[in-house]
Computed example of a mutant assay.
Amino acid sequence: MPMSGTQPSLYQQLRGHLAALKLTAAAEHLPSVLAQAEAEQWSMTATLEHLLAREVEATEARKLAGRLRFASLPTPATLAGFDFDAAPGIDRKLLDELATCRYLESATNVLLIGPPGVGKTHLAVGLGRAAAEAGYRTYFTTAADLAARCHRAAIEGRWATTMRFFAGPTLLVIDELGYLPLPGEAASALFQVVSQRYLKTSIVLTTNRGVAGWGEVLGDTTVAAAMLDRLLHRSVVFNLDGESYRLRDHHAKNDALRQTATGTRRPLQ
């Protein structure tokens, strides 16, 4: 379809139709698409496909931005940015498989266990980001914040609404279980969240305590056993070890400073 003969009035009508249909990206790209179509002699079908593709790209970008806002990820960490050299115990092939998000289809959980600073939160955020980018509704919280929110909900009569909220996302990321002891009502709230998601949707959970110590963290060995039973029934477990990356970074900066200082020092004359 030659474009050189397009009437200006028809062009304005077309832009008006796109605006009326709220196809703002297509309207914005209309001049460049028409110019490229004329230069490369596209068919009418090809021109229309390129124009609508711009609208689809913009729509998907808006949807992703919305999912990321809802996810409330605390950092821009990605799985690709993880330092595998500093975590030799990580099964990279398994992590690559998790990056495909297929585990979400089977409501599989992921437990990241290890001392502070070994990259648990980085991996949890990276998994959350991958899920959001793949189109899954994702939400990130800490164990302490989840417990506090449930406690407020119980006081204010919003318990059922809050439970529905935490049941909703396809992936719920719960960070930092075990850093602070949880009071009885908090442990009960966490158990109920885990229980209502059991075999339906996935949880990524990070903790600095091995599963044997969860009874102490939750203050109730029975609740701990019941929660672990649900989390581990269908799960992938990573045991991370090694020196804290914060300490590694601190040591590296000290070494660099020391080398700079010794390298620039001149002997006394």
Rank of each mutant, 00 (worst) to 15 (best):
M1A: 10
P2T: 13
S4Y: 12
P8L: 13
S9E: 13
Q12R: 14
Q13D: 11
L14T: 15
L14P: 02
L14Y: 08
H17W: 10
T24I: 14
A26F: 07
A27L: 08
A27S: 11
H29S: 09
P31C: 00
P31Q: 04
L34P: 00
Q36N: 00
Q36V: 03
A37I: 06
E40H: 04
T45C: 11
A46P: 06
H50Q: 15
L51P: 07
T59C: 03
T59I: 06
A61V: 02
K63F: 07
L64M: 09
F70V: 13
S72T: 15
L73Y: 05
A80I: 02
P88M: 09
G89I: 11
G89K: 12
D91P: 08
R92A: 12
T100Y: 05
L104Q: 03
E105N: 09
S106P: 00
T108L: 05
V110T: 00
L112S: 05
L112G: 05
I113C: 03
G117T: 07
G119Y: 06
H122N: 03
L123C: 06
A124C: 06
R129W: 11
R129L: 14
A130F: 02
E133I: 05
E133N: 05
G135L: 09
Y139Q: 07
F140D: 00
F140I: 07
D145E: 15
R152H: 14
I155T: 10
R158Q: 08
A160T: 07
R164I: 01
F166P: 00
L171G: 06
L172W: 09
D175C: 11
L180F: 15
P181M: 15
A189I: 02
F191E: 10
F191R: 08
T201P: 11
I203V: 14
L205S: 01
W214P: 04
G215S: 01
A226M: 07
D229M: 04
D229P: 03
D229K: 04
L232F: 00
L232G: 00
H233V: 01
R234C: 05
D241A: 12
D241E: 10
E243K: 15
E243D: 14
D249F: 09
D255H: 10
R266E: 12
P267E: 11
L268H: 14
